[in-house]
Simulated scan of single mutants.
Amino acid sequence: MKRPAKSAAELEALIRVEIEEVCAWPTGMAITVQPDGETWKATTMQDGGEPDEGPINILEAVVNRLRAEFDLAI
């Protein structure tokens, strides 16, 4: 069964909202959603310093769950 499709901006917003429900969104952190073969991936960028592993681990879990629920609208 085909999953519902969301735009990259919609997926980015969903990811951010879910992370903010658990922890503060790291200052200077941005996320982008891009096609990745038959699915999509999320990439983070953060200004200065090493990213905090807590939000990154949460991000991975959220992205994996959303990837199973939604396709990327191209």
Rank of each mutant, 00 (worst) to 15 (best):
3 R>Q: 13
3 R>T: 07
3 R>I: 11
4 P>M: 05
5 A>R: 09
6 K>R: 11
8 A>L: 13
8 A>G: 08
9 A>C: 01
9 A>I: 07
9 A>L: 11
10 E>C: 02
10 E>L: 02
10 E>I: 06
11 L>T: 05
11 L>F: 02
13 A>C: 09
13 A>K: 12
18 E>W: 01
19 I>D: 07
20 E>P: 02
23 C>F: 15
25 W>V: 10
26 P>W: 06
27 T>V: 14
28 G>C: 05
30 A>T: 13
31 I>L: 15
32 T>N: 11
32 T>P: 02
36 D>M: 07
39 T>D: 06
40 W>I: 11
44 T>F: 14
45 M>D: 14
48 G>A: 09
48 G>R: 10
48 G>D: 12
48 G>N: 08
48 G>M: 14
51 P>Y: 05
53 E>P: 01
54 G>H: 06
54 G>M: 09
55 P>N: 05
56 I>S: 08
56 I>Q: 09
57 N>P: 06
58 I>W: 06
58 I>D: 01
59 L>A: 00
59 L>N: 04
60 E>T: 09
60 E>V: 08
61 A>K: 13
62 V>N: 04
63 V>P: 04
64 N>R: 11
67 R>M: 00
67 R>A: 05
69 E>N: 05
70 F>K: 00
70 F>N: 03
70 F>R: 08
71 D>S: 05
71 D>K: 08
74 I>L: 15
74 I>S: 11
74 I>M: 12
